[in-house]
């Protein structure tokens, strides 16, 4: 039953074939993510360590941008890999590992968000400055001339669903078809929503840039 949360498959032969050895003659062929995860499923648990090495940085970066909170992002990454270990038998043979991983991350982030919203928590003062500011225009006075900081602020102003699809669409390992599978919508809808989110981000970004001008 729990498998319903972790079972995930995409009809993506392309995904399985995406990782190809750079030099098939001299180097030993590295296993694809998909092969490694199948190996984990069959009991070679060390292969999960290799998958972690390959993906933890990018997944963490995505989640930091999504949540604006490093601690939360770390908790979610940890939960994702723990669930991979625990529910490894639910990994499907025809799947794309990356899409499955982001699908799990999405579920874990949603769980985390729901719980955080439902429970009072003692905020760590040190973390406050790093958290996404959800209040509208709350950071108007904190505008920075640094484009990266402005972009971060613009990102925080997006609707969470728009932020999610925009960030997923920027992950090079995911095609729109796979982003759509992660989000459980059609590829066309994913593409349109990602474009719309990009337009909104651009509008916020330009507005903040104008305000930051002396």
């Amino acid at each position: 039953m729990i498998a319903a949360f972790t079972e995930f498959s995409v009809s993506s032969a392309r995904a399985a074939a995406r990782i190809t050895p750079a030099d098939p003659v001299d180097c030993p062929t590295p296993d694809s993510d998909h092969e490694l995860m199948l190996s984990v499923r069959e009991g070679n648990l060390d292969a999960l360590g290799e998958l972690f090495e390959r993906h933890n940085g990018r997944l963490f970066g995505y989640l930091v941008k999504l949540t604006g909170d490093r601690t939360m992002a770390e908790d979610i990454v940890q939960t994702v890999f723990q669930r991979m270990l625990k529910y490894r038998h639910t990994y499907r043979n025809e799947g794309s590992f990356t899409a499955w991983m982001y699908h799990l991350a999405r579920k874990c982030a949603a769980d985390h968000r729901r719980k955080s919203a439902a429970l009072p928590f003692a905020a760590d003062p040190e973390a406050l400055s790093k958290q996404a500011d959800g209040s509208p225009w709350a950071d108007e006075n904190a505008a920075s001339v640094d484009d990266r900081a402005l972009l971060r602020n613009a990102l925080d102003r997006l609707d969470p669903a728009d932020r999610e699809i925009l960030l997923l669409s920027r992950i090079k390992e995911l095609s729109f078809a796979e982003v759509a599978e992660v989000l459980e919508c059609s590829a066309g809808a994913a593409r349109v929503r990602a474009h719309r989110a990009l337009g909104e981000l651009r509008d916020h970004f330009l507005k903040l840039q104008r305000k930051a001008l002396p």
């Binding site: 648990l45 490093r70 990454v77």
Partner: peptide, 26 residues
């Protein structure tokens, strides 16, 4: 310009604790 700024966001590094925890779990 927006996409360039978005892609230029610095990649964050997770704490080594994550790796230790996972390896211990395995």
């Amino acid at each position: 310009a927006t996409l360039q700024a978005l892609d230029a966001q610095p990649e964050a590094e997770p704490s080594p604790r994550l790796r230790e925890n996972l390896l211990a779990s395995i």
